[in-house]
Simulated scan of single mutants.
Amino acid sequence: MLVGVIAACEIGFWVVLAAGLAARYPLRMRRTGAALLLAVPLVDVVLLVATVADLRGGATAGFAHGLAAAYLGYSLAFGHSMVRWADERFAHRFAGGPPPRRKPRYGRARARYEWVEFGKAAVATAIGCALLLAMIALVGDAGRTAALTGWTARLGLVLAVWSLWPITHTLWPSEPKVGAASRPPAERARPR
């Protein structure tokens, strides 16, 4: 049942976000759009309440409970940037806003970007692990929460793998390819 709640919350996140942006831009209902965008985190509250209620009801913690903690951690850490990402695209498409920002592709700017994203992943891991430990303490029975202990290792492994991107971009920064795109504009405009 809890896996279904997690799926519904993920779908609900995007539905509430899309409704808020649609109200804000195409429908030009600024207050309604703002209220819906402020309601996006309530989807996470629904998942948290469902998870706690399931554990308090005597359920043995399983894969879904750990997944719920991981989902909540990543949703809280990356939620704001996902809302900003979607808002930039809606503003550009429906309100004549500037083109959406793209992530840097090369050099130090790309390495900095990857470290910021890694920082968000570290925050997500910390939140997820804190929720897992809180669930373990809430239940108070090691036999019923053994599956949650394994999730802390999973989240740590995900973070360790994630660290490869910023490290790689720091040690071996990517450079633009030499070719037509790197030539001066006047040179590119000349007919051949």
Rank of each mutant, 00 (worst) to 15 (best):
A137C: 02
P166H: 06
A124V: 11
F118E: 03
R105W: 01
V49L: 05
W162N: 12
V46P: 14
S182Q: 12
V161Q: 10
V43A: 07
V139K: 11
P166K: 01
A34L: 03
R31F: 12
L36H: 00
R105K: 09
G179R: 06
V16I: 09
H80Y: 01
A70P: 02
H92K: 14
E117I: 15
L67F: 01
S163T: 08
S174Q: 01
A126R: 07
T60Q: 15
S163C: 09
I6T: 00
A59Q: 01
R84T: 10
G156I: 04
A34H: 09
G62T: 09
S81H: 04
A23W: 11
Y113L: 07
V52C: 05
R93N: 05
P99E: 15
L38Y: 11
V15Y: 08
E175F: 14
T170K: 04
G66R: 06
A109C: 05
G96T: 05
V83R: 13
V123G: 01
Y74H: 14
R112P: 04
E175Q: 04
G107Y: 02
P104H: 04
I127E: 06
G62K: 10
R190S: 06
G66W: 08
R31Y: 05
D44T: 02
G179N: 10
W162E: 10
G20K: 13
M1V: 09
G119I: 02
T32L: 15
R192L: 11
L37E: 12
A69T: 12
I11E: 07
A69P: 06
R105E: 15
K120E: 00
A147Y: 04
R56H: 00
G66H: 08
R188W: 09
R101G: 00
E117L: 14
